[in-house]
């Protein structure tokens, strides 16, 4: 009897990773994002120029063998500024989204787990935050705190926190009613222990999917804020800042804003591809469960 039971066990289920692996678009997205990240990391090795020092003799030059993407109105190499800009744009976006994922996820789980008044208070605050359009929310924070790297991270994180809270709360509500959570009470586990070790692993997948999608949006918000002059101050290069500067000379030197805009487009596109793939992989319907 026991032996037959042991045999039944070996039925394989399709793992999340297998679905992820089989999706070509996800691979393309991942590839693009990894290449961009590597380029940002190894920026000093990919260009002979400095992103900040100006060259009055090479102002607004067209793309050439010397300057692949031309130069801007201060004579700086656009390719170089793009590489160094990627460092800051990606860093701000990833840090902001990870911070928002942790804070928003925790708030959502706490709200869903305790329910009642705690839930009410947390979620109403989230609703208020959500009622501001993403860009306006960013504007308010930067306008209040001033434009710096940290404040930009805070601004982006604040706009994204409520989305994570919502995504984490919904599955928490259903998971906390399962028998295995009831069993945890019967085993004498504390609330914090149950939330961290028993509910979080059940909620993590969904939060992660949203995370990969929101990094794309964070890059866009950063670019938008920099574009309207609320981002990191020049001469530090960021993608939004480069577009802004390029926009001033758009008719004389269209390449500056175009290349930077394309970079934002490509990275946002690649992250959306990854997000779609992860969502499909985590979706139980597609796993045939």
């Amino acid at each position: 009897m026991i032996n037959t039971l042991a045999l039944n066990v070996k039925t394989a289920t399709v793992s999340t990773y297998q679905i992820l692996k089989s999706s070509k678009l996800t691979w393309i997205g991942t590839l693009i994002f990894v290449i961009v990240t590597l380029m940002a990391v190894f920026a000093p090795y990919l260009t002979p120029y400095d992103p900040i020092s100006q060259d009055p003799l090479a102002v607004l030059q067209e793309p050439s063998a010397l300057h692949w993407m031309g130069t801007d109105s201060y004579g700086r190499d656009v390719w170089t500024r793009m590489l160094y800009g990627a460092r800051i744009s990606l860093f701000i976006s990833v840090v902001a989204v990870v911070a928002a994922m942790i804070i928003g996820g925790a708030l959502g789980i706490v709200a869903g787990y305790y329910g009642g008044r705690v839930d009410m208070m947390i979620m109403r605050v989230m609703d208020i935050m959500l009622s501001f359009p993403t860009l306006i929310m960013g504007l308010i924070v930067v306008a209040m705190l001033g434009a710096s790297m940290t404040n930009l991270v805070i601004a982006i994180a604040l706009t994204v926190i409520p989305k994570f809270a919502r995504v984490a709360r919904a599955p928490t509500l259903s998971v906390k009613k399962r028998e295995y959570i009831e069993a945890c009470y019967a085993l004498g586990y504390s609330d914090i222990r149950i939330m961290v070790f028993h509910i979080l692993p059940n909620v993590f997948g969904e939060v992660l999917v949203i995370g990969s999608l929101w990094i794309a949006t964070a890059i866009r918000i950063e670019a938008s804020l920099s574009f309207i002059g609320l981002g990191i101050k020049p001469p530090t290069p960021t993608w939004g800042g480069i577009i802004r500067e390029g926009f001033n000379n758009f008719l004389d030197a269209p390449w500056i804003a175009t290349y930077a805009g394309l970079a934002v487009l490509v990275v946002v596109f690649s992250l959306n591809l990854i997000g779609d793939g992860v969502r499909d992989a985590v979706d139980p319907k597609l796993r045939g469960e």
Binding site: R178, E179, Y180, E182, A183, Y185, A186, L187, G188, Y189, H198, P201, N202
Partner: peptide, 19 residues
């Protein structure tokens, strides 16, 4: 709970955390 006093539940299929 879980130390001196312990409990077994009805539904073995749902009483274990799947993750």
């Amino acid at each position: 709970r879980g130390d001196d006093l312990s409990m077994i539940f009805q539904e073995p299929m749902t009483s274990l955390n799947p993750v």
